[in-house]
């Protein structure tokens, strides 16, 4: 399938979804007014990918800031990865955060508690 690369802006993160290299990353800041519009492509890509995923999918998130509209979209992404996991695929979410950013650590823990998929908190 086609790889998806979205370059970052002051309000949206860098997205790399590359099934050839096994790189799945969302990094930077995610504070768009229209988060649903931004994440639609990402969600569609993951939906398509989940039909025949690699033997292992490690999805990296490293966000500096995100707004509450993005938080719903992130949950939608996690739900898709959770479904892949439940379907017997090897999936891991890695939530990277600045080690002195307690708020971002806490947000990661919030998601962790809501999901049934390997979800690792990685202080950087």
């Amino acid at each position: 399938m086609r790889n998806l690369v979205i370059e970052p802006t002051s309000k949206t993160p860098k997205v790399i979804l590359n099934a050839d290299l096994g790189i799945f990353e969302i990094t930077g800041r995610s504070i768009p007014e229209d988060a649903i519009g931004f994440y639609r492509k990402v969600l569609d890509w993951i939906e398509e990918y989940s039909k025949s995923p690699l033997s292992e999918t490690v999805f990296k998130f490293q966000l500096e800031y995100f707004n509450t509209s993005s938080s719903k979209c992130l949950l939608d992404i996690f739900r898709k990865l959770e479904r892949m996991h439940k379907n017997g695929n090897k999936v891991q979410i890695r939530w990277h955060y600045d080690s002195d950013d307690e708020d971002m650590a806490e947000t990661g823990q919030d998601y962790q508690a809501l999901l049934d998929v390997p979800f690792e908190l990685v202080p950087v």
């Binding site: 504070i31 800031y65 707004n67 002195d100 950013d101 307690e102 708020d103």
Partner: peptide
């Protein structure tokens, strides 16, 4: 930390 919080709340 303060800066991040202010920015978040502002957004």
């Amino acid at each position: 930390k303060v800066k991040k919080r202010v920015f978040n709340v502002m957004v």
